[in-house]
Design a protein around this nucleic acid. Sequence first.
RNA 1: GGCCCUAUCGUCUAUCGGUUAGGACACAACGUUUUCAAUGUUGGAAGCGGGGUUCGACUCCCCGUAGGGUCACCA
Length: 477
Amino acid sequence: HMNKKIVTRFAPSPTGFLHIGGVRTALFAWAFARKNNGTFILRIEDTDKAREVEGSIQHIIDSLKWVGITWDEGIDIGGPNAPYLQSERLESYKKYAQKLVDKGLAYADPYTPEEVEAFRVKAQEEKRPFLFRDHRPENPPVWDGTQPLRFKVTDIKTTHWNDLVYGDLSAGPEALDDFIIIKSDGYPTYNLSHMIDDLEMGVTHIMRADEFIASTPKFLALYEALEITPPLMATLPPIMAPDGKKKLGKRDGAKDILDYKAEGYLPEAMLNFLVFIGWSPKDEREVMTAQEFIDAFEIERIHRSGGGFNVDKLDWFNREHLKKLSVGEQKSYVQKFLPERFSSLSDSMLDKLVPVIVERIHHFSEVAEMAEQGEFDYYINAPSFEESKLIWKTDTLDQAKDHLKKVCELLNDYSGEWNSEEIKSVIWDYAESVGRGSVLWPMRYALSGRDKSPDPFILADILGKDETLKRLQSHIV
RNA sequence: GGCCCUAUCGUCUAUCGGUUAGGACACAACGUUUUCAAUGUUGGAAGCGGGGUUCGACUCCCCGUAGGGUCACCA
């Protein structure tokens, strides 16, 4: 039973950065293609020249690549259906537009933008939807390419269709109108161009966010006029702002996806987080790799209700994926976010320090924040001697110094392997005999100068034997 | 305002007529421990309201209510 090969696409417009909503859409379309051994296409819809933002295309490519999305055909790699930039496909759109004109299903819009705007305002004031067809000219001029070209809806009815996610949908006749398919600048609108491209590129499944539900009846009318069988449609639920009250927009904190990269979030965590907004697997798994997501992905399990963007959950996902990284990988991230002054840390010190840091963060920019607050300074500079701190939780300063003196002796005599477990066992019996706190608190202060720090044995391990003894001795004098 | 979609713990969700309504995040308590962190255990916490259908509704239908989308020479 050879089914038709599945082809999906992600088709953003180059009008700025890609935010999480766009990436989520791409992720679903990509996963569906991958799961079914299909083709995934990256197409750029640059028909709105006024809104185009320089550099967007590269930014989109970088964003998708960051989360691990790959495409089989697309703007940067070409493919059998090239070009993948709509501004280079104008002939196709004109051909189909002309077809409609010839059939009497498209006509030139004779009004000025101001006149149309006036119709719209009036409709708004009268609290009814704006319908251009109420103003459809009786004898439209011949289309010479300088006026907008409108599709003429001939069958005004309630539209019924099926959505792979929402099931049977319908919309009243108010959803149908004469909409523009070619603008006065000669470029097509999305309304026309996306379906021509999908047809020519063999797209079988369209995945897009729910704001397109309302215009689907228009698309369906145009498909019919063009005698094109529409692809199957899967509508994705909206991503809501953290308060859950409205759709997440750029004004509500929908950041550039690459900002999360800059903040030290892991791409695999971002992917994991994003796919769980609007989808969930059959079982109760949450932490998943990209491949596990692809394997588990089913359109049937895409949700219909909107999901909120929850930073706490993202942080949790990030921690979970952080733990799965090798120490080497963790180390290169930590190095990236550690300020310049820490470059004096030796490689071997870093190897021991990294796990200690990773245990205390959700994402790597916290490393920079903690460093900013002086959190790691004692790894590169010995803390200054403070008697008051040294005697905290011990009886007297003399006693604290005696304990440190003994610790120094024990460590000095020890010549085995230098790691926190061994260091601990060297000191432990003594600490137990006189009371752990009275030994460990002074050690902590002598080594870090702080009352909140990692275990003193771990500190000693990271600092090395020489530096450890040096710091302890400086507090005995 | 018209058209359309949605509705389970604070948040994300499971449930596809019969469950003590399950899980995760967050939160709280306790345990471990030399502090912090990490970790372990436990806990509180939900079916928007009203009608139906049914032996039985979170689940199906209707009406409210609330939220969201849309009504561009943007996609």
